[in-house]
């Protein structure tokens, strides 16, 4: 097999700390494809480094996320940061393949030595973020990237889950002709720390800003008292010409500061880890119990019995759960 990560290449934590791109790239491939093998490395990396600041960027397809990310990152790099970008696109349910096209919009930064871009597919983790993404964050953080951006398409639960990972979440919207705001439809209104109204060169932009403001106000009235709360701002941008990007970067920095000042309150790191731990557990349970179960004769037999109406799915589940309990001991 030519597959490089399947060579007996062993990656050490020292190599990752040294930050060589090829090593990082292969470590991520290992994370995606050989999860078992990579846990010892991740253990070491996690305990010996700090997680980077994570910016989540989500919104409907075509709203300009990738273009924005490129500009945000350019700004950060100019300030002397090393920055990584993880661009996530959906895996096709039918073929298991994926088309990863976000790099198209990141031409400007794609050869900058301080920027690492990686495209990843969701690989069927519907209803939850692929745990490989957090693990990738661990590797990139250890490799010296102090700021990491994660771009996901905001259409389903998967994408809203980005919030469970990111320190700051940007929700990108665009002025639209109709009254229905896609972000709202997708349930993204509660998810954002900052709203970006991109494509502000569009004639409908002011109308859209009003609509957004209204929606945000409605969302904001509930909850905590005003003082200790982050007022969700709306930043207007034209990503293609970089208009508004400076202000956006300033607002992101303010949110980061707000988080630091507030300490653990809002985005408790405990929550991120708790989410990841659950994801890891789900993944392990699936691999260790559910996947083998699907292949087992006992499972086939149960299915037959259900078909013959000798039992029903509910009782079958209870029976299997009892078995699990025993085995989990």
């Amino acid at each position: 097999m030519r597959k490089s990560w399947q060579n007996k290449m062993k990656i050490t934590a020292e190599q990752v700390f040294a930050g060589e791109e090829k090593v990082i790239a292969r470590a991520i491939s290992l994370i995606e494809n050989e999860r078992q093998q990579v846990f010892p490395l991740l253990k070491e990396l996690y305990s010996r480094s700090e997680l980077a600041y994570l910016l989540g960027v989500t919104g409907p397809p075509g709203s300009g996320k990738s273009t924005l990310v490129a500009k945000i990152v350019s700004g950060w790099v100019r300030e002397g940061n090393k920055v990584a970008v993880i661009a996530i696109d959906p895996t096709s349910e039918f073929s298991g393949g994926a088309l990863l096209g976000d790099r198209i919009r990141m031409d400007d930064i794609s050869t900058n030595k301080d920027v690492f871009i990686r495209s990843m597919a969701t690989r069927g983790y519907l209803g939850g973020l692929n745990p490989a993404i957090f693990d990738t964050v661990v590797v990139l953080s250890a490799a010296g990237y102090k700021k990491i951006v994660i771009e996901t398409v905001g259409v389903g639960q998967n994408e809203i889950d980005i919030v469970s990972l990111a320190d700051t979440t940007l929700v990108v919207t665009v002025p639209e002709a109709g009254d229905e705001v896609q972000a709202f439809k997708a349930g993204l209104m509660e998810a954002g720390d900052i709203f970006v109204l991109n494509k502000a060169d569009h004639p409908e932009v002011n109308k859209m800003e009003l609509v957004l403001k209204q929606m945000l106000r409605l969302g904001n009235t509930a909850g905590e008292q005003a003082e200790n709360r982050w007022e969700v701002p709306i930043v207007k941008t034209i990503a293609t010409t970089e208009k508004g990007i400076a202000e956006l970067n300033k607002t992101i920095a303010e949110h980061q500061e707000f988080l630091t000042e507030k300490g653990e309150n809002q985005k408790a790191p405990g929550k991120i880890i708790s989410n990841h731990l659950i994801h890891l557990l789900e993944e392990s349970l699936k691999r260790k119990y559910l996947d083998p179960l699907k292949e087992s004769p006992a499972f086939a037999k149960l299915l037959q019995e259900i078909a013959a109406k000798k039992t029903d799915p509910y009782s079958a589940m209870e029976e299997l759960m009892a078995n699990f309990k025993e085995r989990l001991g």
Partner: peptide, 10 residues
């Protein structure tokens, strides 16, 4: 002044 166009993927 105008910026550059970048095609989007499918």
């Amino acid at each position: 002044i105008f910026g550059e166009y970048e095609a989007r993927h499918f």
